[in-house]
Design a protein around this nucleic acid. Structure first.
Lengths: 206, 206
DNA sequence: TGTACATCAGTGAACGCGCGTTCACTGATGTAC
DNA sequence: TGTACATCAGTGAACGCGCGTTCACTGATGTAC
């Protein structure tokens, strides 16, 4: 029987490993700090400062686990914006979801993307690759005859850049609907033109 | 007589205020850490831990001064890539300069852009506005009949996103020439199409 | 030119703090017979 | 069903550390006369 959803007071705790990640995320979102103190997390989870070491090798391991949760939730948000976008309009709706996710969970997003970050964490490397593949899929569906590499990079960068510029206050971000409109407009400004000429006259395309 | 360039050993120090900023930047670039410890900076500058407080109100003030230097240097780099870009090709060369700056001075770039950052620092707010204006100028020159707002945001976001994706290892960044090519390709992938139809058939354009 | 004084850049010791991590431990749960 | 034991989640005290900041101070420089 899986214990995925019953942290009861029974047993010692049930699933403290997951509870620690949850506590960490709550702390991040309350404090607005990107720094995550293991002691603070333990305190929040109602547990002694030594306890986390039973579940995570060190601070960095907990941070990676937090980031992994973030990647999963981001993927869900994108998928629920549109399961399989294949037009510039659908792509724009996914872009909006990406940026709003960043704004609603700013510290989580920063931990996922805004840190030198442990190149050794397989979890994180895999999650990153998954996002890249997802974007690439959209681009291939939406612009079948484009230069996939260049265009995938460009699209991801565009959306990612919009997220960070809003997050860092370089673009005003107090009202989500304004942000959504701005993101949509930016994406359309670039993509409408791209779509307008279906075959960009490049040689050697199928 | 201005003392802008003579930190001699004469007098007490000459220009410790600037020396502290310099020490801070050196430390950042050596350690790869975004965290800046006032004590470490003082140590590096060969001065007691209390001394910085004679020049900066607190740690945050020093960090803002560091960011200000970063903005100035970024502006110089962009200007020297092209003083007044007005074609997609010229724009791409500026984009490359932006991304390479981020990669060459990663921690400085993160401090400039990748932190919640003090909304109250006039210096920083002004610097940000200057970058935005600069981008807007390029866009107006390059695409005279476009929707300036949307396109300016899109271009800045595209370039900024490319910088961060490389910086955070989401795009491979070990060889500058590869990065330069990738940035150029990404920019061209989006912009060539935009330029290809000079008047995008929107109503009400001069 | 020489003396008396004000200024102020820089000192160094001290404060209290929260941190990451280790350690020997306790006590509830599960297991074997 | 009852007892003896192994397991292991969680404890709590302690370690050494570097931090930001404050304080009363020193001593070199510049200034007035």
């Amino acid at each position: 029987m899986s214990t995925s959803k019953a942290p009861k007071a029974a047993y010692h705790h049930g699933d403290l490993r997951a509870a620690l990640v949850r506590a960490a995320i709550e702390l991040l979102e309350e404090s607005g700090e990107t720094e995550l103190s293991l002691r603070a997390v333990a305190r929040r989870a109602g547990v002694s400062p030594a306890e986390p070491y039973r579940h995570y090798a060190d601070r960095e391991a907990l941070v990676s686990a937090v980031a992994a949760v973030g990647y999963r939730e981001l993927a869900e948000r994108l998928a629920s914006a549109h399961p399989s976008p294949s037009t510039p309009e659908e792509l724009a709706s996914v872009a909006v979801a990406y940026v709003l996710f960043a704004l609603q969970r700013p510290t989580l997003f920063r931990i996922m993307f805004g840190e030198p970050c442990d190149r050794d964490s397989d979890e994180r490397v895999a999650a990153t690759a998954a996002v890249a593949l997802y974007v690439r899929g959209i681009v291939e569906r939406t612009f079948p005859q484009a230069d996939d590499d260049a265009l995938s990079n460009a699209i991801w960068a565009l959306v990612h850049g919009l997220a960070f510029l809003h997050l860092d206050g370089k673009l005003e971000a107090s009202r989500p609907s304004v942000v959504a409109d701005r993101v949509t407009a930016a994406v359309q400004a670039l993509l409408t033109a791209t779509r307008a000429q279906p075959a960009p006259a490049a040689p050697g395309q199928a």
